[in-house]
């Protein structure tokens, strides 16, 4: 079996491991590191549940082998909040709009949305739908997700941290 030493940064922390070549990044995150916030939905690159940020870009972690991520920076849903007890503005907005039900697609959805907001501070509805077009959700019909991302964009334009004073949904 082909085994490889890798070192990479995950949610800001350096991590080293010995992995078989065939181990996907999502299986590495979940099974080796116990970072179970990233979910496996199809393992063939369609559903988007396994979306993570790789060097800042949203990618499908079922289509990358862990060995390929050596030297890279990976951000998962566990790394989105500013600290261990809080939530990011985007996460808070998902709660505010009830942008989820079963929660299974949510981490991937959040990372795609997070990447969108990094590049586009005032996305249109079409921009939002395009950004999450590769993340399938079976519960919500997407509406409250689109609303939550729009709300987050609006809040981020006002402030950079979630507080009780942030705009609520009208």
């Amino acid at each position: 079996m082909s085994q490889h030493e890798i070192a990479l940064k995950i949610n800001g922390e350096t991590c080293t491991a010995r992995v078989p070549a065939r181990l996907t990044l999502v299986d590495f995150l979940r099974e080796t590191l116990n970072l179970t916030g990233t979910h496996t939905g199809c393992e063939h690159g369609v559903c988007g549940a396994c979306t993570v940020l790789l060097d800042g870009q949203p990618v499908r972690s079922c289509l990358i082998f862990a060995v390929q991520a050596a030297g890279c920076e990976v951000v998962t849903v566990e790394g989105l909040a500013p600290d261990a007890v809080g939530m990011s503005v985007l996460q808070d907005s998902f709660c505010e709009e009830h942008a989820l039900q079963c929660g299974f697609c949510t981490p991937g959805m959040l990372l795609s949305a997070h990447a969108l907001l990094q590049n586009n501070s005032a996305p249109s509805e079409e921009d939002i739908r395009e950004a999450i077009g590769g993340n399938l959700c079976r519960c919500t019909g997407y509406k409250q997700i689109v609303q939550a991302i729009a709300l987050a964009a609006q809040r981020l334009s006002v402030a950079n941290a979630p507080t009780a004073d942030l705009p609520k949904r009208p």
């Binding site: 979940r30 099974e31 116990n34 970072l35 179970t36 916030g37 990233t38 979910h39 496996t40 998962t76 849903v77 566990e78 989105l80 909040a81 939530m87 996460q91 808070d92 998902f94 709660c95 505010e96 009830h98 989820l100 079963c102 929660g103 299974f104 949510t106 981490p107 959040l110």
Partner: peptide
């Protein structure tokens, strides 16, 4: 009002069958 469940899901702290190891 915000559903009680949502917070754990948005921070990746849901616990699904495949998360129990």
């Amino acid at each position: 009002r915000r559903p009680k469940e949502d917070r754990r899901f948005v921070v990746g702290a849901g616990r699904y069958a495949a998360d129990v190891m």
